[in-house]
Amino acid sequence: MKRTLEIPVAEVEPTREALLRALGGPDDRPADARIERLLDEALEELRTRAEPRGMFAETEASGFAAIYEGEGDNETPSPLPEIFPRADLLVLFVVTVGRSVSERIAALFDEGHPALGATLDAAASEATELAAAHLDRIVLDEARREGRANEGSALLRYSPGYCGWNLTGQRALFKALHPEQIGISLTPSCLMEPLKSISGVMVLGPAEIHEFNNDYRFCSDCRTKDCRRRLRAIQPTRPEGDAHGDTERDRR
């Protein structure tokens, strides 16, 4: 059954440390007073304007296979077809922090305040990720209560546009979920509006089903190498950067 929810703004407020990481700069020196003031202003803007919402719905593996297939544009091979059939639970999801934040970012640039605009943009991106993490916790807690997840279970999200899942997959995902009901629309080029939105599938199952080596054809083009950080997060005993030869920094 599909569910929608409004997420408390406090749940999506990024930490100052996360925001500074997103803004680049030195790791080994604190930000000066000016940057700290910008963070204050951006976080206040975010608190005032963010309208975090989410929507999610459980799906069967067969149903998700059709959604994943989409318009047949995915990379082959890719990791997700190896992962999702072994899942205990698959949940389609979408989250957004709303239109008002994006409009404010654009206005700040237009009005000659790009430093605050860029800081708010970074804060909104972090907030969107935190909104998705909020949904993760809801799904995981419920699965635990229902006995569908245990200590060895791990939930990771996968999104169109990443890890071989073509961005055109958004169309099938939107057809299944109808996020228009919470104000998220899809443009002909598969861009979500508001821009600060995330969609995809949550895959819950034994941690090992998420394991894959980052040596697919498309991995060399990936800037974030975010899969390595995500895998480390669900398997904290693995030495960092060891199992997959990962030496990339995750901060950008």
């Binding site: 803004l23 680049g24 700069g25 000016r34 940057i35 860029a118």
Partner: peptide, 20 residues
């Protein structure tokens, strides 16, 4: 300095405002 990760992005943008 920004390319070398010595300063934050808003530092660049504040400098650009000063330039203007």
């Amino acid at each position: 300095r920004f390319g070398a990760h010595e300063i934050f992005l808003p530092d660049v943008l504040l400098a650009a405002r000063a330039m203007n």
